[in-house]
Write a protein that binds this DNA or RNA. Structure first.
Lengths: 208, 208
DNA sequence: CCTAACTTGTGAACTAATTCACAAGCCCCT
DNA sequence: AGGGGCTTGTGAATTAGTTCACAAGTTAGG
C-alpha cells in the first residue's frame, strides 16, 4: 500500500465519527458532500481520502452508511479490541483511566502503573494501580498493545525505551517532551504547551 | 505577514523548549544543526522556519541562546501572561486545572466553571469552581483570553458559541467532536479518539 | 592580512497534499 | 427505453511544504 498521509488518517477517523452519528439517526446513505460539510473540508478531499483504500460508494447515490463505517473501522484497525495501559498515576493518568471515551471506541484500559509505593495496589474504579517495575513482565505476557504515557518530562524517554524493548507497538504520550522511538513503533504525542502556543501565536498574529 | 504554516508554529514552540533546556545548562550559543537534531528535523528546516520572522543568527557562529529564545517567545505571543479558564469540572478539567505545566509557560488558570450545583463553590487548590452561568459575565469583564474546554461532546459546541459571543479569542478543546468557530477565533482541538485511531491504523497497516 | 573551517539565510528544485474538473455510473420518472 | 439529475472516482493542475545547495558572513589561527 502506498504511504498514507497522517492528515488522511485523521480525517478518516473524523468521517467515522460522523458516520456513527448519522447511523444513530437511522439515515441509510450519505455523500462525500455531507461528510465534507460536517468535517469542514471539501467533497473532493473526502473522495480522495477514501480512494486510497478502495471504492466504497455508488455513483449517483452516495455511500451506504453502515457499509462505509464498517470499512472505515477495518481500515483504522478497529476490528479488534485494543488493550491499553496507562503509565503514570498522577492527575492526567487518573483522568485518562476513567475516561469513558476509550471504551466507546473499543479500547480497554486494564491497568495503571506507577512507581510510587503509596499508590501501588490501590484501586481506581475497576482498574488497579500496579508496580511500574512489573511493566516489562506484563507487556511481554501480551497484556497490552498500546501504552499511554502520563509521566513527567524527565522520565518519559526512559519509560518509552522500556516499553518499546518489552514489545509495545503503539504509544500515546502526554509528556511535554520530544520522544524518539524505533521506526516500527507508532508514536503520537500530545503536547499541551505546543497546543497553547499555537493558540497564542494565532491570537497575537491574527489579521496580518 | 505571509501566512505561516501551522507545522512551522509547532516547530517554533519545540525549538523554544530546546532553547530553554540549553539555556538552563548555561550553553551560550547553538546552531540550526543542534536544534534540528533535538527536534528530529533538518537544519535547513530550522533555518527556513526562523527565516519567516527575520534573521536571528550570525553566520559561522550560530544563534545566541538567550536572544533566540526571547525572539521566539515574542513571536509565539508569550511576552504576556495569558489568563485561562477551564470549562468543565470533570476528570479532565481537574487534571488540567492542577497541571503545573501551564504556569511554567506563563498561563494562569484562575477558575473552573461547571453547571453542577454540587461542584460550584468548592475549591481545587487555589482555584474556585464557579457557576457556568457566570461565564459570559466574567469573560466580558476581561478575566480570560483563553478557554480550555473539558466538557462532554454534546454540550461542547453550545459552550463554544457562548464563549465566542462573550469575546474569547482562543479555545483549546478536549471534547471528542468537531467544533466550528468564526474565523477570527483560534481553535485547537485535541481529540483522543483520533489520536488513538491514528495509532491503531499505523500498527495495523505497518510494513505494507 | 590571508586562509581554513563553519554556519547562516535563501532562491531554486523537489516532494507532498489539495483542489479542479469531468467522464462514467446509477436511479428515477415518464 | 431514454433523458435528466446526481454523485462517485480519478487523472491533471495547482498549491503548500520541505530539502538542496551555495553565496555570503564570521571567527580563529598563523
Amino acid at each position: 500500500m502506498r504511504r498514507i498521509a497522517e492528515s488522511t488518517v485523521r480525517r478518516l477517523s473524523l468521517y467515522l465519527s460522523f458516520l456513527e452519528e448519522i447511523e444513530a439517526r437511522g439515515v441509510p446513505t450519505t455523500s462525500s458532500e455531507d461528510l465534507a460539510r460536517l468535517g469542514g473540508t471539501t467533497s473532493a478531499q473526502v473522495r480522495k481520502d477514501l480512494s486510497f483504500f478502495g471504492s466504497f460508494g455508488k455513483r449517483g447515490l452516495g455511500y451506504s452508511v453502515p457499509e462505509l463505517s464498517t470499512r472505515l473501522r477495518r481500515i483504522l484497525g478497529l476490528g479488534q479490541q485494543w488493550r491499553v495501559c496507562i503509565i503514570g498515576a498522577g492527575k492526567i493518568g487518573a483522568a485518562l483511566t476513567r475516561y469513558a471515551g476509550f471504551a466507546a471506541r473499543g479500547f480497554v484500559v486494564s491497568a495503571v502503573y506507577d512507581s510510587d509505593p503509596s499508590k501501588i495496589g490501590s484501586r481506581w474504579g475497576n482498574v488497579k494501580v500496579r508496580d511500574e517495575a512489573d511493566l516489562e513482565r506484563d507487556i511481554e505476557a501480551g497484556d497490552y498493545q498500546i501504552a499511554v504515557l502520563a509521566v513527567p518530562a524527565d522520565s518519559a524517554q526512559k519509560l518509552v525505551d522500556r516499553v518499546v524493548k518489552a514489545g509495545i507497538k503503539g504509544i500515546l504520550s502526554f509528556a511535554p517532551v520530544q520522544l524518539t522511538v524505533p521506526s516500527d513503533v507508532a508514536l503520537r504525542a500530545v503536547n499541551m504547551a505546543m497546543e497553547l502556543e499555537t493558540l497564542t501565536f494565532a491570537i497575537t498574529n491574527k489579521a496580518d
